[in-house]
C-alpha cells in the first residue's frame, strides 16, 4: 500500500459518501444516472468475485464489501425507494449502457492476463469501469445546471482513478516485477474521459459559478 493508492481509495469512498448524502439529504436522484450506478454495481460484483476465496487484508475485504453494498444500495434507492424513484429522469438517462457491458465483456474475452473465469471477469470489470461514467456525463450535459453534490460526486469519482495512476507509476518504479498493463491503460482512458468535466469543474470553482457542461 502506498499513499497514492490510499488517497485513491479514500477519494473513491468519499465520492460514494457524497452521492449517498445527496440522495439521503435531498431524497432525490435528480442529475444522477441510474445506468452509471448499475454499471458500477456490475463492476464491483465482477471484480470482487474472489471476495471469499482470496483474503488480502482486513482493509481490502472491508472496502470490497463497502463498495458492493453501497453500489447495490444506491441502485435499490433509485429503482425502488418511492421518493427517490419519482425524481429519476429516465428521459434524460438514455445511454444504451448494455452496449458498454457487451463491448467490455467481449474485449475481456480477448484481452486478459490469464484465460480463467476470475481473470476474464476481472478484466471485464476493469474495462467496464473505464466507460461506466459515460451515461452520467451524458446526463450532466443534458440536464443543464448540475447541483453541487452531484458535481462533487463526479469529481471525486474521476479523481480516484487519477490517483491510482500515480500509484501504478510509484509501484512500477519501486517494485521490480510490477506490471498491471490492463489496469493502467484502462485507468488512463477512464481518467481521460473526465478531462472536459474536470475543465468545466475547475472553471466553475475558479469563477465561483454554477457548474455547467456545454450541451
Amino acid at each position: 500500500m502506498n499513499i497514492f493508492r490510499l488517497a485513491g481509495d479514500m477519494t473513491h469512498l468519499l465520492s460514494i459518501l457524497v452521492l449517498l448524502l445527496k440522495i439521503y439529504a435531498t431524497k432525490s436522484c435528480s442529475g444522477v444516472s441510474r445506468k452509471t450506478q448499475e454499471l458500477y454495481a456490475i463492476v464491483f460484483l465482477a471484480r470482487y468475485l474472489d471476495l471469499f476465496t482470496d483474503f488480502i487484508s482486513v482493509y481490502n475485504t472491508f472496502m470490497k464489501i463497502v463498495f458492493i453494498a453501497s453500489s447495490l444500495a444506491i441502485v435499490w434507492c433509485i429503482r425502488v425507494h418511492p421518493m427517490v424513484k419519482r425524481s429519476y429522469d429516465k428521459d434524460l438517462d438514455t445511454f444504451r449502457h448494455y452496449l458498454l457491458v457487451a463491448a467490455s465483456f467481449l474485449l475481456a474475452l480477448f484481452l486478459h492476463e490469464k484465460f480463467t473465469f476470475l481473470e476474464i471477469f476481472w478484466a471485464f470489470s476493469i474495462y467496464l469501469e473505464a466507460v461506466a461514467i459515460l451515461p452520467q456525463l451524458v446526463l450532466l450535459q443534458r440536464s443543464g445546471n448540475v447541483d453541487n453534490l452531484t458535481g462533487q460526486y463526479v469529481f471525486f469519482l474521476g479523481a480516484y482513478r487519477g490517483l491510482y495512476i500515480l500509484n501504478w507509476i510509484y509501484r512500477y518504479l519501486t517494485e521490480p516485477r510490477f506490471t498491471r498493463w490492463i489496469a493502467c491503460v484502462s485507468g488512463v482512458v477512464q481518467t481521460a474521459l473526465y478531462a472536459d468535466f474536470f475543465y468545466y469543474y475547475f472553471i466553475s470553482w475558479k469563477n465561483n459559478s454554477k457548474l455547467k457542461l456545454p450541451a
Binding site: R5, D9, H12, R47, D50, D54, I56, N60, M63, K64, F67, E113, K114, E119, W122, Y164, N167, R177, F178, T179, R180, A183
Partner: peptide, 10 residues
C-alpha cells in the same frame, strides 16, 4: 517471484 497475479488493489 511469479507475476503477482493476486489482485491486491481494489
Amino acid at each position: 517471484g511469479p507475476l503477482s497475479s493476486t489482485k491486491d488493489e481494489l
